[in-house]
Design a binder for these strands. Sequence first.
RNA 1: GCGCCGAUAGUGUAGUGGUUAUCACUAGGCGUUGCCAACGCCUAAACCCGGGUUCGAGUCCCGGUCGGCGCACCA
Length: 573
Amino acid sequence: MSDTFEKVMELAKRRGFIWPTSECYGAVAGFIDYGPLGAMMKRRVENIWRDFYVIQEGYYEIECPTIGQEAVFVASGHVKGFSDKMCQCPHCNEYLRADHVAEAGGVKGASVMKSGELEAAIAPCTCLNCGEVLGKVAVFDFNLMFKTTIGPGSQRTGYLRPETAQGMFTDFTRLLRFYRDKLPFGAVQIGKSYRNEISPRQGMIRLREFTQAEAEIFVHPNEKNHPKFARYAGYTMPLFTAEAQEQQGSAVTTTMQDAVKKGLIANEYVAYYLALTHQMLIKIGVKPERLRFRQHLCSERAHYASDCWDAEVFSDRFGWVETVGIADRTDYDLKAHAQQSGTSMSVFIQYPDPKKVQRRRIIPNMGVLGKQYRQKAKAIFAALEHAEPTPDGADVTVDGETIHIPADLFEVRDEIVEIRGEDIVPHVIEPSYGIDRMCYAVLEQAYDEDSADGETRTVMRLSPAVAPVQVAVFPLMARDGLDTIAEEITHTLHARGILAEYDDSGAIGRRYRRQDEVGTPFAVTVDYDTKENRTVTLRDRDSMKQVRIAIGDLPDTICALVAGTFSFASLGR
RNA sequence: GCGCCGAUAGUGUAGUGGUUAUCACUAGGCGUUGCCAACGCCUAAACCCGGGUUCGAGUCCCGGUCGGCGCACCA
């Protein structure tokens, strides 16, 4: 087994990317601290995400609390569906799914039983692990949400959100107004989410507190062609379809246009964000050969999703790791929140031309009917609207009683009405990114060892786009004014928003190595020639090559190198 | 949660119940050094936590925490 994981985690811990949390009290599984370099790198990854979703796509970012009231998660299904009924075998201490125990013991309908019923039902059943008869055991819910209370007196229940998505749904009507009542539109959120995982493992791959970046894009259910699809229509990448997985096949590289045409991907929206995700992951430093897009099998897809893909990054240690999920969630969430909250979550879509529809209205003679039928009058009014009148009158059924209403007690009006549009509940396209997993992938893939002058050199080949320190500045000697010049250069770069780190400690070679190890892509060295002609050397981390460059050109050059506008290799020519 | 394995300076390690816990790298200081982990001198820095056995525990035993692997879990 490769030990890249151990090497990269050791380096990450030692140099300040990732630390175990509250280490002085003993760490807690599933929680990590980002150290100085890790926090900076994570911020850069998040900002690249913002470039794509907020700037390029125009989906504004919102920020909601991480604690939500109970009703939100009742509607979303997390209170009920994010938990299992569990029990513990008194003989072997194994935790078991109570409904599984009951079903195995021949009990029917266990999955819908309440805890009390299940306790009674499983008492005669045997433990699935050790085979002993369970007897009287407690059945309890294990919910993966962290629960808390809001306020001192009320003990109102709150939950730490298990995903940021719900905030975009609960703000739907406000967002709709913000986007001036037109589809499609989207909103995004980057923030912490929480899941009380039973057994968090695998370092920063499965955390109890983690950072998500999610976009919720609200589209017309019948218009799932992305208006800017042309941008990615010709984009090619490997797709591992559900069918290919079932037939033990492998990923096939195809264009997004063909994938939609052949029905491999449900619609242009999903295809568009698959391609955008591919482009983004490459940008932060994931190698194309370690990236694939896998479609969920029918069995693993949530019942409300019509199509779902995972971007998976290959890890030496963990195999293919789900890093991004892109799903068409249909109208499930908005309908659920509309029902739970009593707030309409639909969009009025105007027809191009109003439709003229013939409609029959039945208008009761309230004065007479009211006096005659008293308490029943209200129900009769309601029933009359749907009645089928004859010249004789109309029969309505109220509380099981059929009542004949004579024709002279109501008026039938046939009229032409104009219908100008309809209310529809949008469908939701959801790209959901695990920022911590992206950061891990970046770190693991950046780790490299090469050979320099017969010595092993450890180098993090981080993309300049995500490297925490962007340039190091060294005086060759910390004297003769070289240090002063180097400090001036450092300040000039700071003024341009570049994170430049000054270092004059130790031999020059050691300083280069130190920066190589944390992935600093470029290093500037001030030497004695600098005093003669105001030039410095600019050194490239990956090739260890150097070019001489005028101090005055440094800021623009460094900015362009960091932005990726041009490469170091093109500098020497 | 269960089972197996592990935990010693910042990192990697040595340490068979008996002095002041080994070594290297790293880091800091001084000197030296004119572009890729050079050198000299000095300095700092560790037995995961809590019990127990023992005259004496880094070492043996029990419990916990964290980490790795397997099981289970993973809307």
